[in-house]
């Protein structure tokens, strides 16, 4: 699959403060790309640079092969996005707001009705934008981003402020766009659970640096390598024994389980030792880690959600 968006060694600083420090990533056609990081990690700054709202100190950003600094007009034909909030002209109707954007992007008028149908806003489209709920505004925002059939859509925290039903709607919409319409979706969030459920690839960023990039399934699988959940009896005796002999292997101690890091070679020895000490192993399974856990591990448990 071709790369739709590529960032190569991008740097950005505000005054002396380095906000984006050597960021490189690429987004492939038709994938949902999650851009993960705590608040203040540099997500919005990166997005603004991709959309040409901020200048780049050094490095290169290309969209469909067009450099956004040298070929801004060409590059912008393939990209759309919502930055921070879906801000539009409150005194205009949703339709007029879309009309403005359609004209600016060179999209035909008929496309407005299409995108309104996609986001399901037919009934309220003639109402003033300021009368919409946040969810509706978000939907109009997505409609606006769809107008000129972009190759890639950038969404900055699209689920912010939405209720669970709204979040599910957005998630389904993005999946539909990426997997059915073939539009790459670059979505940033600090809510990891959502990302895990809707993204194909994630990139974790903190303090302006990329910490890890990879496919969600690979990442979660990789991290899970060597972590096993043991169900032991008697529990207190087992915990005491493990603490005494293998404290560094303990990942987590639950009410009736212990998560342990062990390599495949070590499993046999560990199991034998436990049995020798009169402990029954009545359950043992590899642990599927969530993105959240990976994130906590990588960022050292920084302010994930605040």
């Amino acid at each position: 699959m071709a790369d739709v968006l590529v960032l190569e060694n991008v740097y950005k600083s505000f005054g002396k403060r380095m906000v984006i420090d050597n960021v490189s990533l690429s987004v492939k056609e038709g994938e949902v790309f999650g851009f993960l990081g705590p608040n203040g990690a540099g997500k919005t700054t990166t997005i603004k640079m991709i959309l040409g709202l901020l200048s780049i100190d050094s490095g290169r950003i290309t969209i469909m092969g067009h450099d956004i600094e040298k070929g801004f007009e060409k590059a912008m034909k393939y990209i759309s996005g919502i930055v921070e909030n879906p801000d539009m002209y409150g005194y205009l109707s949703g339709h007029d707001n879309l009309l403005i954007h359609a004209r600016a992007c060179g999209a035909p008028r008929e496309r407005i009705d299409e995108v309104v149908r996609i986001v399901g806003m037919q009934k309220r489209i003639k109402d003033k934008f300021k009368s919409y709920s946040l969810g509706m505004k978000q939907r109009i925002g997505v409609a606006q981003a769809l107008l000129h059939n972009p190759k890639i859509m950038i969404l900055d925290e699209p689920t912010n402020g939405l209720d669970p039903a709204g979040i599910k709607e957005v998630r389904d919409l993005l999946k539909y766009l990426a997997h059915t319409e073939g539009i790459s979706v670059f979505v940033s969030s600090h809510i990891l659970k959502e990302m895990q459920e809707m993204c194909d690839t994630v990139c974790i960023i903190n303090n302006g640096r990329i910490l890890r990039t990879g496919r969600v399934d690979e990442l979660t699988h990789d991290a899970a390598r060597g972590l096993y959940r043991y169900r032991l009896r008697p529990m207190d005796k087992a915990v005491a024994l493990l603490r005494e002999n293998a404290a560094d292997r303990i990942s987590e101690i639950g009410e009736d389980y212990v998560d342990l890091h062990v390599s495949e070679d070590e499993i046999e020895i560990l199991n034998r030792r436990l049995v020798e000490n009169g402990i029954t192993i009545y359950g043992m399974s590899p642990v599927e880690t969530s993105l959240e856990q990976i994130f906590m591990e990588i960022t050292g448990g920084g302010n994930v959600v605040d």
């Binding site: 959309l51 040409g52 007009e73 060409k74 912008m76 930055v83 801000d87 002209y89 409150g90 992007c105």
Partner: peptide, 14 residues
Amino acid sequence: SGGTIKLLLITPHR
């Protein structure tokens, strides 16, 4: 102040 500048500037125009 309305934030609409972002939408205005991400269109394919100089």
